[in-house]
Design a protein around this nucleic acid. Structure first.
Length: 111
DNA sequence: AACATGACGTCGC
DNA sequence: AGCGACGCCATGT
């Protein structure tokens, strides 16, 4: 699979997400330049399971702060547990105070 | 090479 | 405000 570097880019950014913070697929996509490739980010995450080092995909949610990929985790409840373990409150599969814990790579990593 | 799919996002109704 | 459809780009078959 060529362009695997794209995935690595995504993984790298996700790994840079500080604990207790979350970001959106679109933000990562935009940071990588594929602002319209939000799906690609999610697709990359799909492959993140089983790679090394592990990627904190639980810190990545959709634009609504919804844990869309929650069902993709081994135990579908692991995601919110990990988030809760980092201080992120999750309710009804969505992040509480999303904007408060939001972490935008385009800003935090500020090129 | 073409078709179908996907952990999203945005526009339209 | 809630639901449906289209668009984008890369991957796999």
């Amino acid at each position: 699979m060529p362009d695997k570097d794209f995935y690595d880019q995504v993984y790298q950014v996700v790994r840079l997400i500080p604990a207790g913070r979350v970001t959106s697929y679109g933000a990562i996509a935009a940071y990588l330049g594929a602002k319209s490739g939000s799906r690609m980010v999610g697709y990359a995450m799909n492959n993140c399971t089983g790679i090394e080092p592990p990627v904190p995909a639980h810190r990545v949610v959709n634009r609504n702060g919804l844990l869309t990929g929650k069902f993709h985790f081994h135990p579908n409840s692991l995601m919110e547990e990990m988030l809760a373990s980092e201080g992120i409150k999750v309710e009804d599969d969505k992040v509480i105070d999303f904007k408060a814990v939001y972490w935008d790579p385009s800003i935090e990593l500020a090129l």
